[in-house]
Design a protein around this nucleic acid. Structure first.
Lengths: 246, 246
DNA sequence: CGTGGGGGTTGACGTGGATCAACGGACTTC
DNA sequence: GAAGTCCGTTGATCCACGTCAACCCCCACG
């Protein structure tokens, strides 16, 4: 791989106040006035092609990113070559929060499809959030939400069996698509079985088998990356009633 | 269990500026002047007896806590009774960050021994961090560090085998004890095998067996909760060279 | 000082998911 | 539209860890 990423400064800058992701993104919960002030914060936008990095582990941390279009995965590479996917991010979600602590990014962020992000210079964000109370509070909430989310993943990895993990994953995806105005029951996964497996702590074969099993049981219809959920309740029941014990 | 916790307002309030945990806790990296201002922020201290809750999942969120003495675990209970320990916290570390996002705590915080925390009213923290630049920045770092730490745990849970997990756990404990001026090679674990297992996604029997194996191999000496590390390099090698593949 | 109970260890056995392998279908590239 | 590659599925086998069970030790408590 080369340099880092093709950077494209968006020619026309779209303000937060006019963005349709307001309800999902950093501005959520802020007043009209406050959101207007955000517009000075959000600088250039940047397009990232599928499979390209937005940033890499070790890169100096300068900005956080809000996804305007597309989707990403974040992963950590261990010295011995193992990869752990730590999350999948969709429109309106933030990337790069891991970099604040050491001023270096601690994971890789890779586009799962051609995507676009808003670049939020971190210095400016701190500055502005000293003045705009709602921004400060909202930013803290975003970070806190990330912590809660991570605890959920830890719970999944630490105490669920393969099929429960996949069911939880599908329900989570469904819920996030719903929040974005898409169908809760039918969606297109942008990641491979291997990436799902890495995220869920399973091998790709196990993920594939679980998909097939769910299909046999009439819970979902799978066609490659296209998923239709036929029985949401059935999936939910799976994660509430562990097969044996735990 | 009853009410929530016995609350004791410390009679004499010890200021951050005079606390020997400055290097580990929220004030880290702040200037003398800034730290002085912290003193108005940190309110009462609170003593928590062993096995008692500092807060519970679902409790309204009002404050975050800095551990002054003792140690805690945080855990999440699933509906079906499964428990996942999401972390162990030692002196100088912060508790309660998970509550910011929903204004409800999302996990339980339980003292592993008789402990004491500094109560930091969250409203005041936001207020003060609008004025004290170093506080704002440091607080963001603390949250970000928590996110990075969680990603590390996800990596551990998602891609390591039992003995690697325990080795990583021991090395992490050792490193944290060192940072607190204790021996890197000899320490006392405050948690049970079951709690370690829950944290590492293993059963207590597996944890016990791994301890025994390490002892046989001369890597450590175990005596109940008392651990002596005899071969740090050996432990480190374990987590860098996975037994088979991954 | 005896007694009870929780925490820890160890062994025998079972199994969920990893591993290894073969193959088929979809997408990419020219 | 042909060729190659990546991705996904499925089967057979293996093994790391969970499960079940017995027992011991340490310590709290009467």
């Amino acid at each position: 791989m080369k340099a880092t990423v093709p950077i494209t400064v968006a020619s026309l800058k779209v303000a937060c106040s006019q963005c349709n992701l307001v309800e999902l993104c950093l501005p959520f919960g802020m007043s009209e006035n406050e959101i207007d002030r955000l517009d000075e914060l959000v600088g250039a936008r940047r397009k990232i092609k599928r499979q390209h990095h937005l940033y890499r582990a070790g890169d100096p941390f300068e900005a956080i990113y809000a996804i305007r279009a597309g989707s990403f995965k974040t992963d950590v590479l261990l010295e011995d070559g193992r990869e752990q996917v730590t999350g999948f991010q969709m429109t309106g979600e933030m990337l790069g929060l891991d970099g604040i602590s050491t001023e270096l990014h601690s994971c890789n962020a890779i586009a799962l499809e051609d995507s676009e992000v808003c670049v939020i210079a971190y210095g400016k964000l701190e500055e502005l959030s000293r003045v705009v109370e709602g921004l400060q509070h909202q930013f803290h909430k975003v970070m806190s939400r990330e912590i809660v989310r991570d605890h959920g993943v830890m719970t999944l990895l630490g105490s669920m069996r393969a099929e429960e993990r996949l069911a939880a994953f599908l329900l989570n995806m469904s819920q996030r698509f719903t929040a974005r105005g898409f169908s809760a029951a039918e969606f297109h996964l942008r990641m491979t079985r291997e990436e799902i497996g890495s995220y869920l702590g399973l091998k790709l074969e196990t993920v594939s088998r679980a998909f097939s099993k769910f299909q046999e049981e009439g819970l979902i219809a799978v066609q490659q990356k296209h998923i239709r959920i036929l029985n949401i309740g059935g999936l939910k029941k799976l994660i509430q009633h562990p097969s044996p014990r735990a």
